[in-house]
Simulated scan of single mutants.
Amino acid sequence: MEKIIAEFDKSSNDIKFLEFNKKLTDSIERPQELKFILEHFSYVTVNGYLKILGNDSENGFSYCNELFSKCYNSNRCLIAYDILCGLFAINIEKLNAIEYFAPDTLEWEDLEIDYKDFLYWVTTNQLDTFYQELIVPDLFTLDLSLESNEVVLTYPFIWSMEYTPSGAVRKIVPFKELLEMNADFYRQLKM
């Protein structure tokens, strides 16, 4: 597990984390790397636009998964989200494969990696490549706090035909609000 911390330290990405001082109460055994993150960190943020969930008592893994399970299929476990409410989740039925709920398509995409690979992936420049279409400079002018579960609502919605990065209006909203809104649109559009 020290390799994970070493990769965080070596990365050219802006990785910040808050160490966690209490003992983990949940009984998470697998994947081992998830247990490690939950035992050692309240959260990890990457490049100011991605939050890896840790054991923060107010805005962490347990809280976000409680919200997530009310909105989406319970065969997934939320592990991270981005400032546009893109979601990274472990699909338990697919042998712990990481899937991404893309806010621009409202679709689940299999990333074909596991949690350990995900932690390494966020330390590479592949992360910026993955987000090059979604993360626009205007997003960083907002006074957003990933630590307290804030995300950016974009109107027209980022998944709509009317959306253009330069013509969009952006507003900071609680993660819960945009999570529930996207889940409603997801269900409506899939029917």
Score class of each variant (00 low, 15 high):
Leu67Phe: 01
Ile52Asn: 04
Leu67Val: 00
Tyr72Pro: 04
Glu58Cys: 05
Gly60Ser: 04
Arg76Gly: 00
Glu66Ala: 09
Gly48Ile: 08
Ile52Phe: 08
Cys77Arg: 14
Asn65Tyr: 03
Leu53Glu: 02
Ser62Gln: 10
Glu66Phe: 09
Thr45Val: 14
Asp56Gln: 03
Glu66Leu: 10
Leu78Ser: 07
Asn73Ile: 09
Cys71Asn: 14
Lys51Gln: 13
Glu58Gln: 13
Ser74Trp: 00
Ser57Lys: 14
Ser69Asp: 12
Asn55Ala: 15
Phe68Leu: 03
Cys77Gly: 01
Glu58Asn: 11
Ile52Trp: 04
Tyr63Met: 01
Phe61Asp: 01
Ser74Lys: 15
Leu78Ile: 08
Tyr49Gly: 13
Arg76Trp: 00
Thr45Cys: 14
Cys77Asn: 10
Asp56Glu: 09
Asn47Gly: 12
Cys71Glu: 13
Leu50Ser: 09
Leu67Ser: 07
Ser69Leu: 02
Asn73Glu: 15
Glu58Pro: 00
Lys51Ser: 04
Tyr49Trp: 13
Thr45Met: 15
Leu53His: 01
Leu78His: 08
Phe68Arg: 02
Asn55Trp: 09
Leu78Phe: 07
Cys71Lys: 03
Ser62Glu: 10
Gly60Trp: 04
Cys77Trp: 05
Gly48Cys: 13
Leu50Gly: 08
Leu53Ala: 04
Leu67Ile: 04
Gly60Lys: 01
Leu50His: 10
Ser57Cys: 06
Leu78Arg: 04
Ser57Trp: 02
Asn59Tyr: 15
Tyr63Leu: 01
Tyr72Phe: 15
Asp56Ala: 06
Phe61Ala: 02
Asn59Glu: 10
Arg76Asp: 00
Glu58Lys: 14
Cys77Leu: 15
Tyr72Leu: 07
Cys64Ala: 13
Cys64His: 09
Leu78Pro: 08
Ile52Lys: 03
Leu50Ala: 10
Ser74Arg: 14
Leu53Val: 03
Asp56Arg: 02
Asn65Pro: 07
Val46Tyr: 11
Asn73Asp: 15
Gly48Phe: 10
Asn47Ile: 07
Gly60Tyr: 01
Val46Leu: 11
Ser57Gly: 09
Cys64Ser: 13
Glu66Gln: 11
Tyr49Leu: 09
Leu53Cys: 04
Val46Pro: 07
Phe61Lys: 01
Ser69Ala: 13
Glu66Met: 09
Asp56Leu: 02
Leu78Met: 11
Gly54Lys: 03
Asn75Phe: 11
Tyr63Val: 10
Leu53Pro: 01
Ser69Met: 05
Leu53Met: 05
Glu66Val: 00
Asn65Ser: 08
Phe61Ile: 02
Asn47Cys: 12
Asn59Cys: 09
